[in-house]
């Protein structure tokens, strides 16, 4: 199981997770077992995380995702790149992206 994110790879959100936005909170609900450590664990993403999540559509590399985000978000490309690598790494660990 790959646990480190790479900029030249293409990632797609897993069908085993449902993303929902409720009351301004963006949450990820595991559908299958093996994603959460606890039985009732739910995951929430911040605004940056949400923007990255929506772009993990299986059609573009993470580098292209970062370039796209740079057009929308202020801040250095380096920071955005680090954010994207950090989040996708976390999601890979939890099998939330493939």
């Amino acid at each position: 199981m790959e646990k480190k994110a790479h900029l030249d790879r293409v990632y797609k959100v897993s069908d085993d997770v449902v993303a929902r936005e409720i009351q301004g909170e963006f949450i990820l609900i595991p559908v299958t077992s093996g994603i959460a450590d606890m039985e009732d664990e739910i995951f929430a993403l911040n605004e940056t995380g949400k923007a990255i999540w929506h772009r993990l559509d299986g059609t573009r590399t993470l580098k292209e995702v970062v370039e796209d985000l740079s057009l929308e978000f202020s801040g250095s490309t380096e920071n955005i790149r680090n954010d994207a690598l950090g989040l996708v790494g976390e999601l890979l660990k939890r099998k939330m992206v493939v």
């Binding site: 009351q23 909170e25 009732d40 664990e41 739910i42 929430a44 911040n46 950090g86 989040l87 999601l91």
Partner: peptide, 14 residues
Amino acid sequence: NRFIESTSLANLKI
């Protein structure tokens, strides 16, 4: 962490 937060259902902010 900076991007993702996990929580039990009872502690969900919603």
